[in-house]
Write a protein that binds this DNA or RNA. Structure first.
Lengths: 218, 218
DNA sequence: GGAGCCAATAATGTCGACACTCGCTACATC
DNA sequence: GATGTAGCGAGTGTCGACATTATTGGCTCC
């Protein structure tokens, strides 16, 4: 009997299950999602499946092709557009965090950076803790709408298969950039925090573009 | 929020019907929404109602109170938070519009301002065309994610009963501010466009706060 | 008289079945 | 050989019924 809450899902709903299936890559961008198939896979009826699909569609993770739903995909332009929006929102989060975060929240961010220095070799672990770091940054803004909008952005990014952290040598640099963000917030310097985030995401974007370009076949 | 302008009442789906009911004020913030009641009101079964409610919930227009759904409401803090996010996103839209909009799009924005000068006395008409103006501004950014995020913001604003345009004397001033935005975009001056939007929304927020304060009873 | 418990009720969550639509294939016709 | 057409099947949209769970109101007991 599994007792580790993190490993075995206790009664997760259809929404989480489908989202994870997309994350893991069972359904890739462009795949068609058939209600009855999902229902059978997860051992429930079509009703909860349909509701989960509705939610995923309103979040733009799924899109309609005729009458059926397929996993949305991001072409180059859309990815660029997404980064622009993400930068604007996450920059705002950093600025607000510099103004509104508690000392404890800043400490937590600082600790996260330091702990991560021990994981620079494990790309998967780094990707996970990177997500946590950014999420914590969002929360530190103390703005619920912003957190919500950034959640949406991050969910869309799940459609992008790889994380830029997997690229050789990106990990340590990204951590330095995280440190700059935390330092600016700790100094209560909103402008610097904004700029640090902008710089960080710009670098991440460049890394991704470079990585994608190398994968091109023509 | 009528998406189908001037159309006949063709078979709108449950989502639109509920949204309109909220807009019109049949269900006010805090009201409890009962599935069977909505189903009867609109003459459909609970299934489509449930799916509509799911969508509205994921868009944060509805919120859970225990197991049931109620129309979300925005307290003072949330309204302030919403304005911050809106300003950041709409400022970005203006900046991008200055960079990417076509001449035709700018012309359209300019026309909208001029036409609206004829409606300054009709608060309801002004509110409608104000929404259209801002929507057009969003589209001029040529960034689909941004448009989508701003759609969300505007839908949340539907929870705020009044529009600041209804306040005495706000109409003409708001139009001047719109003109400033259009001029900056026309000049391809992204910074100025950003600042003009920031100014515009700041004024709108002040107006709303003043209006709300006057409505207080203590 | 108040607190706690239990039953009745109302509302949500889930299900299987049916209706309808659209795309596909196979056949026939020109 | 190409094109139109009729039938078929897969898949979605909708429904009513049943299961499950919160809530409320009344009742008992302290």
């Amino acid at each position: 009997m599994s007792t580790l809450a993190t490993s075995r899902p206790t009664q997760r709903d259809a929404y989480d299950l489908i989202l994870e299936a997309i994350d893991v890559g069972v359904y890739k961008p462009g795949s068609r999602l058939v209600e009855s198939e999902l229902a059978e896979r997860f051992g429930v009826s079509r009703t909860p499946i349909r509701e989960a699909l509705q939610r995923l569609e309103t979040q733009s993770l799924l899109t309609r092709d005729g009458r059926s739903l397929i996993v949305a995909s991001l072409d180059h332009n859309q990815m660029a557009e997404l980064y622009v929006v993400r930068t604007q929102l996450e920059g705002l989060a950093a600025r607000l965090a510099a103004q509104h975060s508690s000392v404890e929240e800043v400490n937590l961010l600082q600790q996260m950076v330091e702990v991560d220095r021990g994981h620079v070799l494990d790309a998967a672990a780094l990707a996970r803790s990177n997500k946590r770091f950014h999420k914590q940054l969002h929360l530190a803004s103390h703005n619920r709408f912003l957190v919500q909008q950034l959640d949406l952005v991050y969910r869309s990014m799940a459609l992008l298969a790889t994380t830029s952290l997997a690229v050789e040598g990106r990990g340590p640099i990204a951590l330095d950039e995280h440190q700059s963000i935390v330092t600016a917030i700790s100094d209560r310097d909103g402008i610097a925090a904004y700029e640090a985030v902008k710089q960080h995401l710009s670098q991440a974007f460049v890394t991704r573009l470079k990585h994608d370009a190398e994968g091109q076949s023509y």
